[in-house]
Design a protein around this nucleic acid. Structure first.
Lengths: 114, 114
DNA sequence: AGATTGGTTAACCATCTACCTAACTATAGC
DNA sequence: GCTATAGTTAGGTAGATGGTTAACCAATCT
């Protein structure tokens, strides 16, 4: 559980690129080989490989090479950590807005009783 | 709804830095002025300002200057778009893993009946 | 008015990122 | 064994990012 922050850095950074998100979306429909992931992207194969390795280093994708083909699949836990961070923020904010709402309401009541 | 992808780029990129996440965590406890956000960070004020403007451009933070102090507050919708993207992926994967589970189970049954 | 506080701008620098092409390795198919 | 396929490595480049210091503007405070 060391350096969780650097972990989140890598995950969010990995998600911050349309090519990499496209790869994840593709992998959501099932495993794929490298060329399959690269084909729809407007870039060379080596470029796509770099993106793939960013995803792998972020722990979002797991790959395995069998013979000469490398098969890639999604790795859910990394994403779920990112999701948790976002969720925690959202809950905080909602609580805050809620308290603010109560506060404003109480101001209203006070004025009503003036 | 134009160029939603570039939008997500900006949001995830903004989240991919511990200083910026720290700012958002601070803002989750209520609005703050610029110096207040910058103080805990191990960097100069101008550097912190740059981070702040990244957050603002991503739509994660709204700021307003009154007199000489600029007050910053959280802007939830941008974050919720990011959350939605992640959530959509997670749902896909879970569905997939579920189907895979059924498939494996059916293989097991088949073998049982051999 | 002068000093202080809060924020901003400018100029600069090191590093990282995202691509490219070319050359290479390793397996599979004929 | 030759050839095609799948992926990888190397080397290079343009531009973005994350930080610095120094100088500056604008509102408060005394």
């Amino acid at each position: 559980m060391v350096n969780q922050s650097a972990d989140l850095d890598r995950v969010f950074r990995a998600l911050a690129d349309p090519a990499r998100r496209a790869m994840l979306e593709r992998l959501g429909r099932g495993p794929a080989r490298v060329t399959e992931l690269a084909r729809p992207l407007p870039m060379s194969l080596p470029a796509a490989m770099q993106h793939l390795s960013v995803l792998e280093e972020a722990g979002l994708v797991r790959t395995e090479k069998v013979g000469r083909v490398r098969t890639c699949a999604i790795e859910a836990p990394a994403l779920s950590r990112a999701e948790q961070w976002i969720n925690a923020r959202r809950l905080e904010w909602e609580r805050r807005l809620d308290r603010l709402g109560h506060y404003l309401a109480s101001l209203g009541n006070q004025r009503d009783s003036d």
